[in-house]
Design a protein around this nucleic acid. Sequence first.
RNA 1: GUGGGUGUAGCUCAGCUGGCAGAGCACUGGGUUGUGGCCCCAGGGGUCGAGGGUUCAAACCCCUUCACUCACCCCA
Length: 443
Amino acid sequence: MKITAIRGFRDILPDESDLWQIVASQARTSFSTYGFSEIILPILEKTELFARAIGETTDIVEKEMYTFTDRDESSLTLRPEGTASVIRSYIEHSLHQKEPVSKLFYIGPMFRRERPQKGRYRQFHQIGAEILGRDDALIDAELLLMLNDFFTALRLDVSIDVNSLGCSTCRPQYREHLRTFGESKFAALCENCHGRLQRNPLRILDCKEEGCRHATSDAPVLADFLCDPCRQHFGQVQALLQNEQVKITVNSRLVRGLDYYCRTSFEVLALGLGSQNAVCGGGRYDGLVEQMGGPAIPGIGFAIGVERLAMLLQAQERQDSTVPDVFIVPVGEAAESQAFAVARRLRRDGYRIELESGRRSLKAQMRRADKLAVPYVLILGENEITAGKGTVRDMRTKADRSLAVDLSTSAQDMMNAIRAPSAQLADLSRPPEGNQHKAKSEV
RNA sequence: GUGGGUGUAGCUCAGCUGGCAGAGCACUGGGUUGUGGCCCCAGGGGUCGAGGGUUCAAACCCCUUCACUCACCCCA
């Protein structure tokens, strides 16, 4: 019986993992320009943390958490999201007393026991960012701006959907209006929405059913119910972003799942992800820190789904950053130790070197060099070893330069010799497939 | 948790009414004694997801089960 990865968990193999590196390093770069620092959090927390932060009646807490009993009978949970841990840490270390505003980001795995499907895994990864300590519109706008910068830097053309969910004074009123409205349209709504009407009426606004969309087309709009402070806040956020020409779409039907969101809420949707089409979701959560036993400190944050983002980037063309600079071909076993030493010397200077086996035919080695799209091959055969000089083949011009590289010189000198005439030929591109140029011989 | 689809070589997939397990790509060697892409030849690689049943004979028919996948729900 073959052992395989468990359901909903998966390996990220090298051709995908380099994409992850790009995403993670871009996040670090983009976020640091906005003054964010990385926080590294435990993956395991007390179950109570998530139950309180996310909400006892949410799907996540009710049926999706990996919860187990530790040897001392305490209940532990593999984190299903990151915000709760950030808040716990923020309160635990009294960060609010050390600085007026905390800007934190994290990257790591999250766990939810859902049925897997395209873009949804039981272990998935999020890049999240949180700003704690300020509730003014400037902060909301700054966070959205940063998000926009991040996606732009990855050359993804996305639009951010934004809405205001109001606060504890204005939302309950709207909620009741919407429920009354929904009950008046009861017959036209789907079965799911009948349940939503009881549990969370706002959810009927983003139902995918055609009938429900039609029935709710003239539903009351949340924006009309916002209290003055909320209305003003949301207006400022929009104005700030419009001044910066950030592409946002006000979507009055945008509602977010987790209990703690209020005021500014947003998500980034993308095509090509199947029905799990949100790459990023977030919003403001002003009462949460206090609710978790900390001081009354406002917060806002978002989480980006790394798998989904990687899927989007995969669809784009990518350049392979792992192509070796030089491919070393020892011909015969006798040449291997010399080749080994040369490879070592070049690598120590930071060059990417691929070393083949002298036991394989020259032809086979060349075939692989071609496959890797290597620009230069350094051939070390009998003649080269006795002369102490390597032969270079420029794979693009197909030109050999016999014994052109003195193997006793420094790595830098060897590289200069290997690349010598390539400066003039820098823009020479690889000929198209099937092209039958004759090899030029030189020297 | 609920539905649909699919499981055959490393990958993508053929395989008819049951009758010797196949192709393309990839990999390895050779054609070219020390030189890549195209072409040609050869080779390695399979518990046909698993278990049971029917049959002289099952990848194929029946039952059970597992996995993967897409969608609902929910969410990143």
